[in-house]
Amino acid sequence: MSQSDKINTPQTVTKTTGRVIRPVAVSRARQNSFARRTFFGFTLLPVFLILIVTIALLVRSWPILNAYPLSDLLFGDVWKPTDGQFGFRPFILGTFWVTVVGVVLSVPPCLLASIYLAEYAHARLRSIAKPVLDLLAAIPPVVYGVWGLLAIVPFVDKVLAPLSDRWLGSVSIFAVNQPTGFGILAAGLVLAVMIAPLIISVMYEIFSTVPNDLRHASLAVGATQWQTIRNIVLPQVAPGILAAIVLGASRALGETIAVLMVVGNIPQIPTSIFDSAYPLPALIANNYGEMMSIPLYDAALLSAALVLLVVILIFNILSIIILQRMMRQKWAS
C-alpha cells in the first residue's frame, strides 16, 4: 500500500505531464489532493472525539474535583449530595463486584467454547456459531435486563440463594443477607451472558493467529489435540486471551440499563455476591439531569462518568494494542 502511495502522489502526476500542462490532469491532481485533505480531516475525527469527550467531562467535573481532594471522592463512604457529601466508594465497589462476578462467570465457558470452535469444530458448526454469536451481540441491553428481571432474579432468589445459604452460608461473600434476588450475582449473571459474544469472538480470532504448522508439528509426534492446545496453542495466545478478558471487563464496567434493572440499586458497601449494589453507570443513569439545583451534584455525577471513562479507556487501549499486535503478526506471516 505504502508503495503505491509513493508512486502516485499528485506531484508525480504533474511531473509526468511534463512541460505541456494538461488542464485535465492538473485538475484531477488537485481534486486528488483536495480529497486527501478532506478525508484526512474526517479521519482525525475519531482521535479527536476521544479527547473531546474526556476533556468535556473533565471540565464539567472540575468544580467538584477542585472542591474536594480526589481521595475523599474516590474513597468516601457517604453519598449525601444534599449535605455536600460525595463519597463514591460504594458505587466504585459496586461496579467492581458486578464486573468481577460477570467476568469470572463468563470467562471459563467462553474460553472453552472458543477453543472448541477454533480447534475442534467442523466448518459447519462454525458457520452456525457465527450468526448465533452475532444475534447474541445484537440483542439490546434492555432486553437482557428484561430477561434478567424475569428469569435471573427469580432464579437467584429461589434457587441459588437457598443453596448458597445452606452450603456456603458461613463464607461471607456467599452469605445471603438480603434475600430478594436483586443484587450482584443477578447482575453478574446477566453481564456474563452479555459479554460472552464479544469474548468468544475475540478469543476465536486470537486462536486463528496460531499457524497451523505448529499444531501439525505437535500432532505429528503423536500428541492428542488437547495436549497440542495445552502445550503449544495456549502459551502462544496467552496475552491475547488476557486482552480479550480485559476487553470483556471494560464492556461490563460500562453496562448501564441491564445492570440497573437487576442489581437492586442500594448505595452500600457490598460484602456478599447476594447483596444489592449500586454501580457507577446506574448512579449516573438514575440521577443525572434531576435535582440539578443541588450544588456540585451535576459535577459529582459527571466526575463519576469521568472515572468510569478513564478506567475503561485504560483497559481498552491496553487490550486493543495487544490484540492488534497479535493480528498483525498473523497477517505478516
Binding site: I50, L309, I320
Partner: peptide, 25 residues
C-alpha cells in the same frame, strides 16, 4: 493503526458516558 486503535477505543466507550457527554454539550 492509530486510527483503527482510536476507533476501537471509541467503540468501547459505554453509551452512558456518551449520554452524559451529550447532555453537557
Amino acid at each position: 493503526h492509530y486510527v483503527r486503535l482510536s476507533l476501537d477505543v471509541l467503540w468501547g466507550i459505554p453509551s452512558i458516558v456518551y449520554g452524559a457527554f451529550g447532555f453537557t454539550l
